[in-house]
Design a protein around this nucleic acid. Sequence first.
DNA 1: TCCCGGCGTTTAGAATACTTAACAATTTTG
DNA 2: CAAAATTGTTAAGTATTCTAAACGCCGGGA
Lengths: 188, 188
Amino acid sequence: MSTTAPSDDIGTRLRLVRQIYGLTQRELARRAGVTNGAISLIEQNRVSPSISSLKKILDGIPLSLADFFTHNFAASDQVFFAAAELTEIAFGETVSMRMVGGNLKERALQMLQETYQPGADTGEEMLRHQGEECGIIVSGSLTVTVGAQEKTLQPGDAYYFRSDIPHRFRNPGPASCQLISASSPPSF
Amino acid sequence: MSTTAPSDDIGTRLRLVRQIYGLTQRELARRAGVTNGAISLIEQNRVSPSISSLKKILDGIPLSLADFFTHNFAASDQVFFAAAELTEIAFGETVSMRMVGGNLKERALQMLQETYQPGADTGEEMLRHQGEECGIIVSGSLTVTVGAQEKTLQPGDAYYFRSDIPHRFRNPGPASCQLISASSPPSF
DNA sequence: TCCCGGCGTTTAGAATACTTAACAATTTTG
DNA sequence: CAAAATTGTTAAGTATTCTAAACGCCGGGA
């Protein structure tokens, strides 16, 4: 019953959200049906808006009151990640991953660039966890086992399954295999 | 980025929360440092409170703005569950569970009364999932394996582990085993 | 350079929220 | 049962928010 409380500095919060969405005070005011002056005063914390006003304004973005108070907008400002910025994760000698946005908080999604060396295998005791996952082979080939099904995927091929179905990845070929995967929620 | 938006009927919402917490308008007003009249007007939707007022009022409960807008208070009104109301879940012939609050939405916690018949076994391919779990043996005995550790628990004994550590439950004895377990988040 | 358009800010007045103090209805208590 | 305390609601006045219209600032184009 206890969500981490965001700062009650509504003004800064609103200004941040507005700028993230690339709106000017006047443009947002027009969409929301309020005056630009009101938004200015609120953003300076010179007034404490009524719920009805705040709701009108957020509707112009659009964003729900719940999302406005729940999410930590300050923490999620990085949008683009250079290849060198991806977080490296290694599993033994044969499997390595590069994660997008490893520094972000409260992610709902995880995207990885994975590399399987020849012979790499996640092991016979199948992987199982909550959520769903999906991937596309970029180069090389990969044998994917999901429940009773098994297939060797070539570049361009893809998979999608509920992660609670036992699954396993192996690289049978002589070349290393690269793929891009996404899963939700993140498992690390 | 999109949470399910609660009704924007702030008045009804506030009245519901206040009553759930067993407070009168005057008592809440006293704690919050506002007048009972203000709370009355807000609850009737005759005014749309300012954020500052609403925050003061919620502080008197106490409840954060984020929680106020996020949670679905109307849905979580059942507090007591008769034995007959527990939801039955069966796994094969040897394991059965009875869940508390199976009808509730947005649970953060799952509590089960589990029964393992003699010889019951969750299997060699160990269980793994997100969260944490905990249990206490009520009757009979149960062999619990968690990672490299294994122990046969007697009535009164308990366990607690991160659910991502592979685990397994078996009933080695001649009698059936009952236990009470809790896990978070719920896995079904 | 000057003008134009857009930006956020400010001010005076209209609209709304909040307080104070009373009221009626119900429950508690002696 | 009657007195007293407690509950939610309401009316009038005060405090606050919001609107309308102006201000000063900055950058781009004749």
